[in-house]
Write a protein that binds this DNA or RNA. Structure first.
Length: 200
DNA sequence: CCACGGATTGGCT
DNA sequence: GCCAATCCGTGGA
């Protein structure tokens, strides 16, 4: 029931393995509005070497600094000038890989998440499936922004805690969404049939 | 200094 | 299905 944050060693493995194993784990944000938790239902791997789609591909830059830290921290970036996307950094110091959290199934704090997404007046008036079924939506619902870039996932306000593994038969794989490079790699992982996972 | 475009989303045709 | 919104890192002049 009460599970511990995943240890740093969990993240010091191949990024595709971490992306797959993060399915079913619990994302937790002890936010100003209350404790928010949800089960990770969809991820994508971005490698530190030979992956043109990765932000780390051009090498260390001001924006991607956190990707090159040791695994087990959060990398947040602004997408299309409007949204934020959250990643779990993986690999050793200097490697430059991360797992994008694309969708989450809300567990605790659903009303706060709905308020974060739609405003207080929108709570209870929108289809729940649309609260966190995309990377920008996850960050908005969970109240994650650039202030969380680089925070530890073990002992800060944002954690990822252990939970029951998802069996192989329930894991779907596909090419990554929304990219134009290295589209041949099947580095998107999701829980089949989950209503918070789009494009199945 | 300036121009370009993206790991997205939601609204309109 | 198409496309605008909107920021800022990055790269070329």
């Amino acid at each position: 029931m009460h599970s511990a944050p995943l240890p740093v060693s969990f993240y010091l493995r191949d990024v595709t393995q971490v992306a797959r194993d993060l399915l079913g784990k619990r994302l937790i944000h002890n936010s100003p509005g209350g404790i928010l938790t949800g089960m990770i239902t969809e991820t994508e791997a971005y490698d530190g070497h030979d992956d043109p789609a990765s932000h780390s591909y051009p090498g260390p830059k001001p924006r991607n600094t956190m990707m090159f830290k040791e695994g087990g921290i959060l990398y947040v970036y602004r997408s299309y000038g409007i949204h934020f996307c959250a990643n779990a950094v993986t690999g050793a110091e200097g490697y430059g890989a991360a797992v994008l959290i694309r969708s989450v199934e809300p567990e605790s704090g659903k009303n706060v998440m709905a308020a974060n997404r739609f405003g207080a007046a929108g709570v209870g008036k929108k289809d729940a499936a649309v609260i966190s079924n995309g990377p920008g939506k996850v960050c908005q619902a969970f109240g994650i922004d650039m202030s969380h870039n680089g925070v530890s996932l073990q002992n800060g306000a944002v954690n990822i805690c252990d939970s029951d593994p998802v069996e192989d038969a329930a894991v779907g794989m596909s090419e990554r969404i929304g990219i134009t490079k290295a589209t041949d790699r099947m580095w998107r992982f999701y829980i089949k049939g989950n209503r918070y996972v789009p494009k199945q």
